[in-house]
Design a protein around this nucleic acid. Sequence first.
DNA 1: ATTATATCTGATCGAACGATAAGATCCATC
DNA 2: GATGGATCTTATCGTTCGATCAGATATAAT
Lengths: 211, 211
Amino acid sequence: MSALASRPAGLETRRAILDAALDLFSERSFDGASTRAIAELAGVTQPLLNYHFAGKEELWRAAVDDLFERFRTSMERRLSGLRGVDDVTIAKLMVRHFVEFSAANPQLHRIIMQESKRAGARLDWLVETHVRPLYENALAMFEHLAARGELGPVAPAHLYYLLTGAGATVFVMAPECERLTGVDPFAPEFVAAHADLVVDLLIRATTKEPV
Amino acid sequence: MSALASRPAGLETRRAILDAALDLFSERSFDGASTRAIAELAGVTQPLLNYHFAGKEELWRAAVDDLFERFRTSMERRLSGLRGVDDVTIAKLMVRHFVEFSAANPQLHRIIMQESKRAGARLDWLVETHVRPLYENALAMFEHLAARGELGPVAPAHLYYLLTGAGATVFVMAPECERLTGVDPFAPEFVAAHADLVVDLLIRATTKEPV
DNA sequence: ATTATATCTGATCGAACGATAAGATCCATC
DNA sequence: GATGGATCTTATCGTTCGATCAGATATAAT
């Protein structure tokens, strides 16, 4: 009756649909991505989306769930086995991993930015389900840095959007960057240099009292 | 025959349509903003949009033209009569004005970010018509700062997206910021503090060689 | 007052949208 | 190898989309 995906073929199809949905939702926004376009990119027919997912909205949530799950697990893997390392080094690693993940998966902030522009049910769900846990982690990181004297008296809301904006925007806007500057922001050297800058931004740019 | 807006009533209607179009295009993306919703917000009927503008695409371009024109004139007004002032102070004023304009007009970067995610005719037009001139100004500013020894050896593509991302993201994502942090980013004190941080980011965060 | 043109509305077109119904096909199990 | 549920397709529904057209209304010019 319902789509339990209990057979291998169903799981593969489901994954193909999720990948296609993530790409098109993040690139064209929720309204701009038609279910027919998603189905075509996934190599299936359009009504099959309604077999595997209850509707467009639930397909969107499933694709976003999948993306955030990958971000969470990759961050945990990156920080595992670092029990003895000091907070400043861990903070640098977290910021660097965030930038690198944003480069490898620009869909993350494309979707966040898309939905965050407008109040509504999708934003409510996104914030409470996925964004707030990340924000809490960031707050904890800021407090650790402040306790070590590495952070100036800057409110966390400023820091959070300064960091995420500085770290992710160039990858969100990669097509413009390429056309405007001739630089491919996904090139490994660019990603590494950008991560360095954002880490420096966190550690150094706020240590002195702003004007 | 064509919409020349030679009568006062036509000009007022045209302005109402442009304002409504800018709000909905920036908030809901090009596809998500229906011409009927724009017409309703402007207080007119839907076919009237096709009387004043050749089609949805041209309405979008007209609204974007209008917005960038306001940004350009406000920046020129801000920097006029500063002939004797040194380059560093001028650069700070430029960055501060950019942040303040982004707070007062979040539609600017909402539209840029929306279109910059995907290659296409709208992005091509946007970059060549409006974004590249702004980027050239930023490049000139970077060079002036570098000549004064106030800038580290950072490629302009990094600096440009670091600055615009750090300065505009919190206002683009204002609904999320409010819900996530409880802070209203449009409050004058928040805008001023954010502008201070971004100015500091430009002047200080890059003066030392990154790791 | 009449005319001409600018401005605006109601009706409606074909296309694309998300969703559903009915049935074909596949495959593990007995 | 027959059965039954899981998977997938074809056909099509009602709605909304951007656009067009014919005509109503308003206003400036004569």
